[in-house]
Simulated assay, not measured.
Amino acid sequence: MATHQKNSVLKLILELGPLITFFVVNARADTWDLTRLGPFADVDPDTVPIMAATAAFMFATVAALTVSLIAYRKVPVMPLISGAIVIVFGGLTLYLQNDTFIKMKPTIVNLIFAATLLGGLFLFRRPLLALVFDSVFQIDDEGWWKLSLRWGLFFLVLAALNEIVWRNFSTDTWVTFKVFGTMPLTILFTLSQLPLLQKHAIAQET
């Protein structure tokens, strides 16, 4: 039990660490007066916080993936895809000094996950979520179909919410939503699926 709890805590840290880093750097960048540093000397002062936060987010994401690889000998598919897009869109944000790219990153990630799950159901007639989590949840085929459909639609909702927030509110509001809005919504949605998992659970022989 102790080992399981330690693994759960480490996974939570690896998941939240980059997001918290992103939020803290964006919130404190002005206080730290980063314009004194070479990389930010020629950057518009108004965009320094989001640029610094993006760089820190990229570094923290790579660090989290590295620790995950060392600790578990593998990197889960979803964090790996998300991390790769963080590097690409974060790099474009810093190179072009345009925060639109990092703001669009959650939209792109969620659309990829939604297209994968929904495309698997309606194009290939397979609940692809079962390929990723079959070792974690033992549920029947109907349960995998329903779970894949619900998560696919949920990812679409997250993509839409991200577009609404970044296009209509300030950068600080978007950063706050990304850290303290998206994660709670995901946790609540995950908990809401417990009845489905229980209803379609496959009885295991002792």
Rank of each mutant, 00 (worst) to 15 (best):
F155M: 12
T93L: 11
F113C: 05
E142H: 09
L96W: 10
A159E: 13
Q138H: 11
S148Y: 02
T100V: 04
T93I: 10
A159K: 09
T100C: 08
W151D: 15
N110G: 05
G152F: 03
L131S: 03
I112E: 08
F124S: 04
A114L: 12
P106H: 11
L129R: 13
T107H: 13
A84H: 11
L123D: 07
L123P: 01
V136N: 11
V109N: 06
I87E: 13
D140I: 03
I102V: 04
T116S: 12
R126D: 01
L94C: 12
E142R: 12
L156H: 07
L147D: 07
F122E: 15
S135P: 00
L96N: 15
L161F: 05
I139T: 03
L156S: 14
T100D: 13
E142A: 09
V109K: 10
N110T: 08
A84N: 08
I108M: 14
F154D: 10
G120F: 00
V136C: 02
Y95L: 15
L92T: 10
L129K: 05
A160E: 14
N98P: 03
E142M: 05
G83P: 03
I112D: 07
I87K: 14
L121I: 03
A115N: 11
G90V: 06
F122G: 15
G90I: 06
L128V: 01
K146G: 10
W144I: 00
G91A: 13
G90T: 13
L153C: 12
W145E: 09
L147T: 03
T100P: 04
T107D: 14
D140G: 04
I112T: 15
I87F: 07
A84R: 10
M104P: 07
N98D: 11
A114D: 12
K103Y: 04
V109I: 09
L118G: 04
I112M: 06
R126K: 10
L158F: 06
T116W: 01
L147P: 00
G152Q: 05
D141I: 01
K103L: 13
L129Q: 06
I108S: 13
L121F: 03
D99S: 14
V88T: 10
I87G: 09
R126C: 00
I85H: 13
L96V: 14
E142K: 11
I102F: 08
K146I: 03
L147G: 10
R150L: 09
W145Q: 07
F89T: 09
S148F: 01
L118H: 03
L111N: 09
L131I: 02
A114I: 05
L121G: 05
L161G: 08
L121T: 05
L131G: 02
L128S: 04
L131P: 00
E142T: 04
F101A: 15
F124T: 03
N110P: 01
K103H: 07
K103A: 15
R125C: 00
L94A: 14
F124R: 02
R125T: 00
Q138I: 03
D141W: 00
